[in-house]
Structures are given as C-alpha cells and as structure tokens.
Computed example of a mutant assay.
Amino acid sequence: MEEGTKTLVFKDSNLVSKSNSIIEASYKLGLVEQKVIATIASNISPSDKDFQTYTLSVKEFTVLTGSKARSMYSDMERIVKNLMQPFSFINSEGKKTTIAWLSKATYNTGEGTVTVRFDPDLKPFFLLLNEKFTRYRLGNIIRLRSSYSIRLFELLKSYEGLTERTFTLDDLRSKLGVGDKYPKWINFRQRILDHAMKEIGEKTDIVFEYTTIKKGPSINAVKFKIRSNPNVKIKNEVIENKVSKVVENDEVLEIQKLGQEMGLKLSKKVISAWLQYGRENVVTLMESIRYKSSVDNPIGYISSVLPKLKENEVSEEAENDIIQKVVRQVIIEHIPKKKVHKIDMLPDWQIQLNAIETFSKFMTDAEALDLWNKKGKEITNEINEQRFKMIH
C-alpha cells in the first residue's frame, strides 16, 4: 500500500453524505461505479479538510457487492479508469458542468487492490458541505443490483421527510441517466420503476409508491409517495444543516457522552482512533467495563482491546466482557414487570439467539457458534442465578 493511503472500510453502517446538488444532477453512472463512489464517500470524515487517498480491496468489494464475475479484477481496472474520465452533467443551477469523479486511480497489479482519490473539484459535493445534503447508510445501496435503483433511492431519500415528490417524466429519465432506453412508458415502468420499487422496498430503509399524472392522453409526470421502511433496520437520516452543525459527528458526541457517564474525559482524537474499529465495538466494550472496578485504566484497556476485536483475535478477557454483555442484555429483557415471589428459569434455547447474535459482532459466525457451544450452559446458569437473586 502506498505511503499516506488509507484502507477503504466497507461497513453497512458507514455514512454516505452527498450534496443535494449532485444528487439532483443529471448524469449516467454504472452500477459498480456508483457503489465505488458511495463507498469512498462513506469513508470521508466530517473533520477532513481535503480528500484522502484510499486503497480499495477488489476481492472484498466483490464479496460485498455480491458480484460473481470471474473478470472482476480486470473489470475493476476498467471501472476506475472510467471514473477518471471527464463527464458532463447539469448542476442544480441548470449549468452544464464537466468534471471527473477521480483524480487518481491506480490498479495495483498482483496486489488485488486499487488506489483511488476523489477529484478536488468534487469538494463542494462531498466535503465540508455548506448546503443541503442527504446522509444515508452505505448498507442501503451496496446490495442493490440496478444502477437505476441506486439513483432513485438517493433522489427519494433526499425528500424522505416531505413524503411526496413529483418529477416530470422527462426530468426523471434525465436524472436516472436512462437516455434513449425504454422509450415506451410500459417498458420504462416495468424495467425501471417497478423493479426499483421492489428492490428498494426489500433492501433499503424507505419504501415508495407512485402514481402517474397525464397531460392529455400522454403521461407527463410521476408522483412518488415515500415513507420509512419498518422491515429494514438501517439507521439513516437526512441532513439539512450548515457545516458547523455537521462537524460535530454524531458518533463522537455519543461516545463522549457515554465517557462522561463513566467518569472518563475523552478527547475527539482518542474517540476517532477508537471509531475506526466500529461504533458498535466501542460502545459494547465501554458498557462491558462500566461497572468493573478491576479495570484501573479504562482508556488504555479499550485502546488495547479494540484492535483485537477488529481482527477477530478476541482475548479471553475480552471474551468474558462480551459474555457479560449477553448476560446483562438477557436479564434486562426479562426483568419482571411487577413484584413476584418466584420466577421461571430461562432455558438455554431462549438465550442462544441473543448470545450468538452478540458474539457475531466480534467474531465469525462459526466462532460465535463455537463459543456458545463451549459457554452456553455457563451463561444460562449465570443468568438464572442473577435473576433468582433479584427477588431475594
């Protein structure tokens, strides 16, 4: 990996922030190209003053995008080269603009990686945003299989809070980059709108319905009704604040507040270092030692354990912390709602799902199952003993 580059991190929880002006622009971009752009954008920190250079693992990207193409390595070389080519789009002011997505794209032969960096002219669209913009979790679009679905998701997501949005048919075709394809309404509806409605509803945190508006005998516009999807749990938010409000990163503030509750004064530098291992890992580890007096140096402990969680090298001490998290979760979920004199013992099968789900955040599914098989009875006994003590 080149000096000064960062490894591109692929996580469903990564936040993609885009200026609404680039979301509203008319341009055509392929499926994988859109995912590359979104993934790079999701690695930008609100505190970044300039674009960073990232190393993208082709193999990891192939797995996360669900691609089975045997030519993915050569395809990726072609894709990043395409992203370096200037393209024209109509900006929010109606002006034709020519720009390139990437200023650097190096295919590292033999390493299975690509080194990429956004073109500096994209700063107004992705960095230090000072106008309305939309934020969503990367997990919303990374598994979509249609480039039109991704574009339509972003267009509707930017209006999610307003519940309705209407496009003229010509404007919608232009924004989706359809060009001359599917000139007949029935084909456009079936191949793009109906397909996107099904895919977005199954894989993202919004759902939509649409109706047509006619002008004479012809369809002139499409009206979308947008609402949150209760069946997909990916936390998202649409941001319409100035940059001064954006820089105070949600996750940093959350960790600072939790630290204050634990009596820890955490600098943003320390928190940023922790967050590279994932918010869930940081919060879980902090909660696991919250009431543990045996940890003399909580900040040092967390800093040393997090890399092991990231690499699935869970120490015995960290393993015990994770088990205690399961114990607390289950006990809280089964606290009697009223005073009782007797409680039923919880069977291990009732605890197993919760335990394996928590273990899997820190290790592979196979390792999580193996840990349950080794510690399941012990965990069940501890939970039941603590619940029994609660009423005596």
Rank of each mutant, 00 (worst) to 15 (best):
D205L: 00
T134M: 04
L193E: 06
T98D: 09
S304Q: 15
D121F: 06
S228Y: 09
G376R: 00
M262C: 12
M345W: 10
F167S: 03
T168D: 01
K104W: 03
T134F: 13
I37C: 04
K11C: 00
F87L: 15
Y107S: 14
S21N: 10
G110I: 13
T7P: 00
S147T: 10
D50L: 07
D344L: 12
V58S: 06
D171H: 00
N297I: 05
R137P: 06
K35H: 04
F188E: 00
Y27G: 04
K223R: 14
E254I: 02
G300N: 11
I356W: 01
F118E: 01
L152G: 02
S17Y: 10
V238C: 05
D12I: 00
T166F: 07
K175W: 05
R173K: 14
S244Q: 11
E60T: 11
N236I: 01
L172D: 03
Q190H: 11
R151H: 11
K35E: 00
R143M: 10
G201L: 01
E3D: 11
D180S: 14
S21V: 06
S360E: 02
K269R: 13
V222Y: 01
N373C: 01
T166M: 04
D348Q: 12
P120I: 05
K49D: 13
L83W: 09
K184F: 14
K389S: 10
G179Y: 12
S244I: 11
V243W: 01
F118W: 03
G30S: 15
S17T: 14
K308W: 02
K342T: 14
G179Q: 08
K175S: 14
L369P: 02
I335Y: 10
K223S: 14
S244R: 06
A221C: 10
E33I: 01
I22E: 05
I323H: 03
G139T: 14
K338V: 13
P217S: 13
F51Y: 11
Y54S: 07
F167T: 03
V246A: 06
R151G: 07
M363N: 01
P86H: 13
G30C: 09
E209M: 04
N249P: 04
K184W: 08
D121I: 08
F51P: 02
N140C: 09
I356H: 04
L128T: 07
P336T: 08
E209T: 14
Y291V: 09
K157N: 07
I343S: 05
L346M: 11
D344P: 06
Y54M: 05
A355T: 08
F87K: 11
I331R: 07
L264M: 12
F61N: 02
D194S: 12
Y148M: 00
T358W: 09
V330Q: 12
A318F: 13
N20D: 15
I22M: 05
N241C: 08
L162F: 13
K235C: 11
R279P: 00
N354E: 10
D48R: 09
H195W: 12
N43A: 10
D50S: 08
Y107G: 07
T134C: 15
T113K: 07
N82I: 07
R279T: 06
S149G: 13
E2K: 14
I226S: 01
E319M: 14
G201N: 02
S42A: 08
I255Q: 03
D250R: 09
P183G: 11
K375T: 12
Q329A: 12
L264W: 04
I356G: 02
N281F: 00
G94R: 08
S74D: 14
K49G: 12
T358G: 07
D119K: 06
I331G: 02
I335V: 15
R137E: 12
